[in-house]
């Protein structure tokens, strides 16, 4: 009797867990299914390779990669240096704790605010007058790069910090100066974690729309330079989805599918890359 009731409880908890998991997974699968179903309806070769002016999203795809790429050029080095500082140099002291607090706060700032910051600093500074604003993709990259710094910084700090002190001591005992130890030993060993963090940060900023809305704005044409308005998948989806025209809404689904694929692809790369090489078994 006692045993039976314990078994019954066991079964009950199992079923409960299953139902809760299903409740979480079903909406996710629904969203993915919806995006694939509606998105594929819009897809064909010319949709993906022609610019908005010709009814495609090619320039928005390219724009997203250019803006993200510029954000990486700025966000990854600063993030890595910040993480390196926090892990190897700034263990104590007021400056280190200030950097730490700043990084934490930066990761909590809504992306809209970062977009406004980029607008206020770059767009307004470059503009002739309030009626003639100079919109540029560089400002978007600044806002997105700022978002990347705490993500890359944290990943770098954590993957460097877990490296055993024995390794640092080995390098110290060889008379290797600290900056060489830090870059060519500790950072070199941590590079997998840094790369993973950077890829995930790239995926994270790929979905950000707010910082682009009033910085890169949009363009119907192929980009001809970086210091100009530029189309992006995010802003295209935002504009088209709200347009009310059925054909544009379909195109927004198509763009959403592409954006989702970028994020999924990055996550798969990270998964494969970080998979342990040797299976542990006893």
């Amino acid at each position: 009797m006692h045993l039976l009731s314990r078994k019954r409880k066991e079964t009950f908890v199992k079923i409960l867990c299953f139902l809760v998991t299903a409740a979480v997974i079903i909406p996710l699968l629904w969203i993915i299914g919806d995006v694939i179903y509606n998105g594929l309806a819009a897809w064909n070769i010319s949709f993906l390779v022609s610019p908005v002016i010709q009814g495609g999203i090619g320039n928005a795809i390219l724009g997203t990669f250019i803006i993200n790429g510029m954000a990486c050029l700025f966000g990854i080095p600063l993030g890595v240096l910040t993480g390196m500082y926090l892990s190897e140099y700034g263990q104590e002291g007021w400056f280190a704790s200030m950097v730490r607090t700043t990084v934490e706060s930066l990761s909590g700032i809504p992306s809209l605010i970062l977009g406004l910051f980029a607008y206020a600093t770059i767009i307004i500074a470059l503009s002739q007058s309030a009626t003639d604003r100079h919109y540029t993709a560089i400002a978007s990259a600044l806002a997105l790069g700022l978002m990347m710094i705490p993500l890359v910084g944290k990943a770098t700090e954590e993957s460097m910090r877990v490296i055993s002190n024995d390794i640092r001591e080995a390098a110290i005992a060889l008379g290797v100066p600290k900056w060489i130890r830090t870059t060519r030993i500790v950072l070199a060993i941590a590079k997998g974690g840094v790369l993973t963090g950077s890829l995930l940060a790239f995926a994270r900023i790929s979905g950000e729309t707010a910082p682009l809305l009033f910085t890169a704005l949009f363009s119907n044409f192929w980009p001809t330079g970086i210091n100009q308005p530029m189309a992006s998948l995010q802003v295209l989806i935002y504009n088209y989805a709200l347009s009310g025209y059925p054909n544009l809404v379909t195109q927004a689904w198509g763009a959403a599918l592409f954006l989702a694929l970028i994020v999924v692809a990055i996550n798969i790369i990270v998964r494969v890359y970080t998979k342990p090489k040797y299976k542990e078994g006893f």
């Binding site: 055993s164 024995d166 001591e169 080995a170 110290i172 005992a173 060889l174 008379g175 030993i185 060993i189």
Partner: peptide, 15 residues
């Protein structure tokens, strides 16, 4: 430290 080398308790080759 270049003149006085050291070997530690736990082997610590650079991985």
């Amino acid at each position: 430290r270049r003149k006085v080398g050291m070997v530690f308790q736990k082997p610590n080759p650079f991985p």
